[in-house]
């Protein structure tokens, strides 16, 4: 039986080299020709359930026809973790060619056997580390034939409400939405949300808003004593907090990739 290839989203961290084609009239770094930075990009994942080349091609064609604009020159990750390695040898280079012929740019593979990964490497694809399904930072992969556009979560999910203290060692994650905590967040506790975070008690632990990359997310708290505060991966640790805002009611947001802390 052949299942259709599913497409999900992968939130992955890649190294980018920015500053290569610098505008010569306004050089950002007159001495440095390049810079290596960590960044994160959301990519579509092509999950294979079968190594049947014919079936893959037919179903791939159907999928691409649903959203041709989206897939034009789209970078894509091939997920091999559902394939049975011994029984189904996949002609990897042929499959990569067929993806490229359809206008996709496969950039890497995930999962699969060692032989499959070697085949991927010889096809000049990167082998990405497998992400464990219990990882709270991972976007839920779309199942079956459903398809989700690769945009960061914008807080469409339900708001999560916590009315008891969040103790040291506890971890709370509001997937797809906002998080409201009506009590204190102790040192060593960690609260995360895809959307905004509101804390109507002391924030003494860590608060991470927009963990799926939503840079519009904000953190609001009535008493800032956080160990760490982050929005979309941009963070500040306790040591770097301005003493003037410590213990005060504040909001935290991003402006030009800078974490701004303002009084409420």
């Amino acid at each position: 039986m052949i299942e259709s290839p599913a497409i999900g989203t992968l939130h992955t961290t890649r190294l980018l080299n920015s500053g290569m084609p610098v505008n010569s009239t306004e050089p950002h770094h007159p001495t440095a020709a390049l810079e290596i930075k960590a960044g994160s990009i959301t990519l579509p994942i092509l999950k294979l359930f079968s190594a049947d080349f014919e079936a893959l091609n037919v179903q791939l064609e159907q999928k691409l026809r649903q959203a041709p604009e989206f897939f034009r020159n789209a970078p894509i990750i091939v997920d091999l973790s559902e394939l049975v390695p011994d029984r189904e040898p996949l002609d990897f280079s042929a499959f990569v060619d067929s993806l490229r012929n359809r206008g996709l740019s496969p950039v890497g593979v995930r999962g699969g056997s060692q032989i499959q990964q070697q085949a991927a490497q010889s096809a000049k694809l990167a082998v990405l580390a497998e992400i464990k399904p219990d990882n709270a930072h991972q976007a839920p992969a779309a199942q079956g034939a459903s398809f989700k556009p690769a945009s960061p979560a914008k807080g469409f999910g339900p708001t999560k409400l916590i009315d008891h203290p969040v103790r040291s060692g506890q971890r709370i994650y509001a997937a797809g939405g906002d998080l409201i905590v009506l009590a204190q967040v102790s040192p060593g506790a960690e609260i995360m949300a895809d959307g905004n975070i509101h804390i109507y008690g002391s924030l003494k632990g860590r608060a991470l808003a927009g963990v799926q990359g939503n840079l519009e997310a904000r953190v609001f708290c009535s008493d800032l004593q956080a160990e760490l505060i982050a929005i979309g991966g941009h963070y500040k640790i306790s040591e770097n907090l301005d003493e003037a805002v410590r213990g005060k009611p504040v909001q935290v947001y991003l402006r030009d990739n800078l974490l701004i802390i303002d009084y409420l």
């Binding site: 103790r167 040291s168 102790s186 060593g188």
Partner: peptide
């Protein structure tokens, strides 16, 4: 105090 806080979290969950 920190360890007690951790234990309270475990008691609750």
């Amino acid at each position: 105090v920190r360890d007690s806080d951790r234990m309270l979290g475990l008691l609750a969950s």
